[in-house]
Every structure is written in C-alpha cells, then in structure tokens.
C-alpha cells in the first residue's frame, strides 16, 4: 500500500519566486499561465510599501488543495465525480462525469478549485499523480512532499530552533549581566 503523502509548505523558506506555479501550470496545462496553476502563492496585502519587520518575514502563503479527510467538494458534488483515494489520500475529479456545475469550487474553504474556461473544466491539485512538480522545482525547499505522519516536522523544527535561540539569548544576557556586575 502506498503511503499517504502531503504537500507541506514552509513559509520561513519561501521567497515568493512562484516557480512552483509555473511548474504546476506547465506540467498540468501544457502552457505557462499563473492563473491556471493549481497552487497559488499569495502575498499578504499591505506589506509591499511598508518596511519589513521581523514578523513580516512570513509574507507569503500558499493556497492549494489540502486533500481534506472530509472534503466539502465531495459532499456537494451532484454527480459524485469527486472521490478521495483511500490509499494516496488524493482527492481527484473524474472529468468524464463532471458536468461543470462548480459546486465544488463554491464550497471549498481554501479556494483550491478553479474553473478553467478554455478547457471548460474544474481543476484542482491532484498531486501530479504522486510526483508534485511544484515540490520538484521549488528552489528553496519551502515546499516539501512528506509522508503524512512527518508533515508536522518542519513546523516542530522551527519551534525548536526558536526555543533554543531564545534560551541561549537568555543565558547569554544573564552571563553579560553577571559580568557587568562583577566588573563594577
């Protein structure tokens, strides 16, 4: 049985180059069109003109299919065209039975399903059949394709690093204070 893997996005590493989007639309549409990418890197509004602070480092975020366990798109589909694969966890649209009513697009809380007007079809991330091109072409490693049980590790690593940093800082500060104390 294939292990269920998910795309994990790590905002700390994202530079916003949008290479993932180009790769996605090129691979899945045969033509580069950012609007037809199934994964959208969005820049939080209001930061472009204001000076960046430390908190503002994480100004990019990603919107793509979360391959939900209980997907709203599946719930509302009137032709039962969307299915969740039990093994890979991937939620896919069957275009032979889909009539294009867009209830999935309407109900998705992540905006992860869009309508391709040229092909008259609804499109969503289907993990490129198990080898996501966005992950393959991400130059900074902000996107990772990890087994589900390891998906939390990047976040945990960051937290651990922050914790260690603040702890060393506290120790250093204490040491400096002590030194100042001894000097006076």
């Amino acid at each position: 049985m294939e292990e269920e893997k998910v795309i994990v996005y790590d905002p700390v590493y994202c530079s916003g180059c949008m290479r993932c989007m180009t790769a996605c639309s090129t691979y899945n549409n045969g033509a580069t069109s950012l609007s037809k990418s199934r994964l959208q890197i969005v820049r939080h509004e209001g930061h472009a003109i204001s000076p960046l602070t430390e908190e503002d480092d994480l100004i990019f975020d990603v919107l793509t299919c979360q391959q939900c366990n209980q997907p709203a798109c599946v719930y509302f589909c009137p032709t039962l065209s969307i299915k969740k694969n039990n093994e890979t966890g991937c939620v896919t649209i069957n275009h032979d039975t889909c009539v294009g009513c867009r209830m999935c697009m309407v109900s998705c809380p992540f905006g992860a399903i869009s309508y391709d007007g040229d092909r008259r079809a609804l499109i969503k991330c289907e993990l490129c059949g198990g080898d996501p091109q966005c992950v393959r072409f991400c130059p900074t490693g902000a996107l990772k394709f990890l087994p589900k049980k390891e998906a939390h590790l990047p976040k945990r690593n960051h937290l651990a690093r922050n914790l260690i940093q603040s702890r060393t800082r506290a120790i250093r500060d204490a040491a400096t204070r002590e030194g100042e104390h001894a000097g006076s």
């Binding site: 979360q66 366990n69 209980q70 599946v74 969740k84």
Partner: peptide, 13 residues
C-alpha cells in the same frame, strides 16, 4: 483547524 469540514462526512460509492 480547517482540515476537516465537519459536519461534512465524506462519501464513497
């Protein structure tokens, strides 16, 4: 967490 859309349990037919 938005991972699940409870109460939308999902169907398999």
């Amino acid at each position: 967490p938005l991972r699940t859309m409870r109460p939308f349990a999902h169907v398999r037919t």
